[in-house]
Every structure is written in structure tokens, then in C-alpha cells.
Design a binder for these strands. Structure first.
Length: 447
RNA sequence: UGCUCAGUAGCUCAAUGGUAGAGCGAUCGGCUGUUAACCGAUAGGUUGUAGGUUCGAGCCCUACCUGAGCAGCCA
């Protein structure tokens, strides 16, 4: 703890202010006078006592005023504060078990800053639609703090994982000249009198990165214009896509399972408090350790048949199918060798099973569905060109992509992980809309 | 786009076809230890829109608007 305190001190840049987390983490001593700057979270009174709950983004501190021992002006200022009004408050730190967090501030002075009249979000219940309308204010509440801090940790874990393994970050473009996969509906924009589309995947560019750096990854927003209205879909979401030269499907699966294990174990270690706030049952997350079960498509179909689900061999799995399969396992499950017909043009087919692609998806437990999709890529120029034509894609748009096969082609593999679905799963949320600060959905472009 | 459901006070919700209500929030008052405090009072409504049935519609019917859940698409 002392080590941590020193570290924070060294990086401090706010000379005049103490943060609430400093007090709660015992970095400010009992009996010292401090000044906090923050917002009023809640107010309660009991006769001559006034309790102000002040938040500053790092924590919540109960501030206590005994009215008779303060001047009238200070009391008036404190009583005039409403929910989410901003303030500067000075007082003495006291350890008190009756205070939430074990510490409170015995107030000597209050200076109101910005007023807050009729703050829309009250401490009681609200519906999701109302809260999403006030998302810019909803971010101030406790559960949203927990979710977005976990998101922050997941994103940091993603970067650390690849950075520590010698991957190079290759940022891929958001404006693209054509569909990456040719399937999804894309957002179209006017680009100096020609059409450009918002990217639905950085993968093709990440492949160029892998041929340049051996191990590369891209990480950025992606866009899908499908009119999806489910708890698993956003029109704008973040995806990380590693791509590795000389890696085959088996290597790809090992990378993906180690990656997911690292993310989940990092969150369990660094965000235990936030998971408690969200009342997440962490026993199911503790299981997330490699190796994950590997299930061939044919086996997965057998599981569905045994479960009595109506499923036609050769189709891709629907959401209820994915749930049924994932329920059979206590950790994420890797499904591989999907029928080539239901997968993208760039996925290499297995020479031993020509109707199957060297593809793999990872299904998260507890019904959270597909969080990873990946494959070994087609590395043969002629085959890839034929596949582009089969899918009726404009070959001229892919000339640069074909160059990757023309000049020193190698076997290579990669996958994409959806950040919001991962956050929803780890946090145990019902809907991905809370996993990103400002969600974009078919009926939501604001705030 | 299809199926299902919903729309009543600022918010969350009640109200057999028969006088539109509660809790929270707001405002005022009370209480020296509150923990989503508690107690008392006050204000707050064109029941999503338009039409229809009926002596009478928040409730029944039709259309429309808005949104949600599920499906498809996918991460």
C-alpha cells in the first residue's frame, strides 16, 4: 500500500486537490484537513446534522455538517446544493464506521460552483430507454463507472497481450473502397464524388500488416448497417484483429484461447471491486483457462440433434443453437471446420475436407454467443481470385489484396474479437448498449 | 424486414367499461448519525396521435406514430 501511495504521489499533477480515492486508500491521514472538488451525489439531513455525499469520479465521500457549529453562510450554501451540483468542500478527515467507506469529512467550508436544477436521474429506478436518452449523465452513476472501468481494463489487457508478444499495431483505415467480406450491409458515404464505405473489418489490411511485420494487430471501431435490434448488436463497435504469418488454424486457436484467458484473468485480478458492484458471479469467469474445448462442426451438429433442436446440416448456427452448444461446457468453446459455403471468401478450405473452411468461432459461456471469429486465410492466388469471383465481388477492388498472394505468400491466420460482447459477458450484462460510453444502434444516434 | 409486447404525473408503475391513483423526485416543515433515511404537508395529468363502438373509453375496435424484446445478419 505504501508503495502504491508513493507511486500516486509521484504522478500527481493537481497541486491543490486531494482525491477521494486517496482518502479511502489511507493516503490521507486521519485528522488532516483536505479540500475536495466534486459533485453532490446525494444529500440527507437529520435535524441539525447534514450529510453530503460527494463524488469526484474516484469515489464517494460522506461529508458531515453539524449546523450549530458552522456559520450561517456555510450552512445555507450546503443546504442549497442539489443533486449533481459541483462544489469545493473543505474539512477534516475522520475515521468513522458509520460512514460508507469508513471515512468521512467533517466540513468546515463549502463553496458551490455550478448549480444543478432538476437533475433528471434520481436515486430510484429508471427504464433503459430513459437512461439511454440521458447517457451523458448516466455515466456518472456507480454501475456505469464499474462497467466502463472494466472496459478500460479489457482494452488495456488486449493491448498488453499483443504488445508483450511482439505484435505490431497496424491501424487500418475506416474509409474503405469496397466491402471487406461482401456480406454485411455497409454505411455509405460520399467521398469527393465517389463512394466510400465505413469499414466492417480491418482484417484484410491486417493481413498486409502480418506480411510486413510477421505478427500484427489492428484495433478500432467497425461499422455494420444491418437493422439489427437485439441485445448483442451495435451499429458501431470496437474490434481487435490479430493476424499472424505462418500460423495455421491450430496456432490460431491457441493464440485465441490464451488471449481470452489473459483478458478474463486480468479483469478478475484488477477489477474485483467493480465485479462485486455489478454482482457478477465470478466463479464462472475463474474457469476461463486454456485449453478450451475444441468442437468440430459435425460434433456441434450432433449436440444440437441430441438437444432436440431443429437444425439443418450445412447451415450456420443461430443464436439459440449457440446457447445450446455453449451450455455443454464450463468455459468458452471453440467450434471449427464450418461449412465453407456459410463462411467468407477469404477463408482457406481444408484440403482433407474440401467442403469445410479452416474457420473457428469461439462461443462465450452463459449464452453470450460468438465473441471471436477467425480462420486460416486462403493463401493461393488462383484459388483466392476464383473465390472472389464466386462471391461476385469486384475483383479490381481486391487487386492489392491479391498482391499479398502474388509476392511471397505464406500460410497465415487471424481472428477478430468484439470488445462490447466481451465486456457484456465479463460484466454479466443483459445488453451491449451499456458496454460502450455512447452506444450507436439503429434507433439511437444521440447523445 | 417479420413475429410478439408496450406507450397513464419529471421517473417507476396501478386503476372489472362507471369520480385518474401510489411510491420516488421537486417544494415547504420536523428530527444531533443519516446509509435509496424517516415523519407531515403542497404542487404536479389533453392517459402517444386520429377516428370509431357505447348512456359512458386509460380500458373495446381500426389506422398511424414511437420504442422494446426475439429472429435474421454478425463481433
Amino acid at each position: 500500500m505504501a508503495e502504491k501511495a508513493r507511486q500516486v504521489k509521484d504522478f500527481s499533477f493537481m497541486q491543490s486537490t486531494v482525491y477521494i480515492e486517496d482518502i479511502l486508500n489511507h493516503r490521507a491521514n486521519d485528522g488532516t484537513e483536505v479540500t475536495l472538488q466534486g459533485w453532490l451525489y446525494h444529500k440527507r439531513s437529520s435535524g441539525k446534522l447534514l450529510f453530503l455525499l460527494v463524488r469526484d469520479g474516484t469515489g464517494i465521500m460522506q461529508c458531515t455538517l453539524f449546523k450549530p457549529s458552522l456559520d450561517a453562510k456555510t450552512v445555507e450554501a450546503a443546504e442549497g446544493l442539489s443533486q449533481e451540483a459541483s462544489l469545493t468542500i473543505t474539512g477534516t478527515v475522520h475515521k468513522d464506521d458509520r460512514a460508507p467507506g469508513g471515512y468521512e469529512l467533517q466540513v468546515s467550508g463549502v463553496t458551490p460552483m455550478g448549480s444543478s436544477v432538476d437533475y433528471p436521474i434520481t436515486p430510484k429506478e429508471h427504464g433503459p430507454e430513459f437512461l439511454m436518452d440521458y447517457r451523458h449523465l448516466w455515466l456518472r452513476s456507480k454501475n456505469q463507472h464499474a462497467i466502463l472501468r472494466i472496459r478500460h481494463t479489457i482494452i488495456k489487457a488486449i493491448r498488453d497481450f499483443f504488445d508483450n508478444r511482439g505484435f505490431t499495431l497496424v491501424d487500418t483505415p475506416i474509409f474503405t473502397p469496397a466491402a471487406c467480406e461482401g456480406t454485411s450491409t455497409l454505411f455509405e458515404t460520399d467521398y469527393f464524388d465517389t463512394k466510400a464505405y465505413l469499414t466492417q473489418s480491418g482484417q484484410l489490411y491486417a493481413e498486409a500488416g502480418a506480411m510486413a511485420f510477421g505478427k500484427a494487430y489492428c484495433f478500432g471501431p467497425t461499422f455494420r448497417a444491418e437493422k439489427s435490434k437485439t441485445r448483442r448488436h451495435l451499429t458501431e463497435f470496437w474490434m481487435v484483429e490479430p493476424e499472424v504469418a505462418f500460423a495455421d488454424l491450430a496456432d490460431n486457436m491457441v493464440l485465441a484461447e490464451q488471449f481470452l484467458e489473459y483478458i478474463v484473468q486480468t479483469v478478475l485480478k484488477d477489477r474485483a471491486e467493480e465485479l462485486t458492484t455489478l454482482e457478477r458471479d465470478t466463479t464462472k469467469l475463474e474457469n476461463v483457462k486454456a485449453p478450451f474445448p475444441r468442437v468440430h462442426y459435425d460434433e456441434a451438429v450432433k449436440i444440437l440433434k441430441e438437444a432436440g433442436l431443429p437444425f439443418e446440416y450445412g447451415n450456420d448456427f443461430g443464436a439459440p443453437d449457440e446457447t445450446a452448444i455453449s451450455e455443454k461446457f464450463d468455459r468458452p468453446v471453440i467450434i471449427h471446420h464450418y461449412p465453407s459455403a456459410v463462411k467468407s471468401f477469404y477463408m482457406k478450405r481444408d484440403p482433407g475436407e474440401p467442403d469445410k473452411a479452416l474457420a473457428m468461432d469461439i462461443l462465450a459461456p452463459e449464452g453470450y454467443g460468438e465473441i471471436v471469429g477467425g480462420s486460416q486465410r486462403e493463401d493461393d492466388y488462383e484459388v483466392l481470385l476464383a473465390r472472389i469471383k464466386e462471391h461476385k465481388l469486384p475483383a479490381e477492388a481486391f487487386d492489392w489484396y491479391l498482391d499479398l498472394r502474388r509476392y511471397g505468400t505464406v500460410p497465415h491466420s487471424g481472428f477478430g474479437l468484439g470488445v462490447e460482447r466481451t465486456v457484456a459477458w465479463i460484466c454479466g450484462l443483459q445488453h451491449v448498449r451499456e458496454t460502450i460510453p455512447f452506444a450507436r444502434m439503429i434507433h439511437r444516434l444521440k447523445p
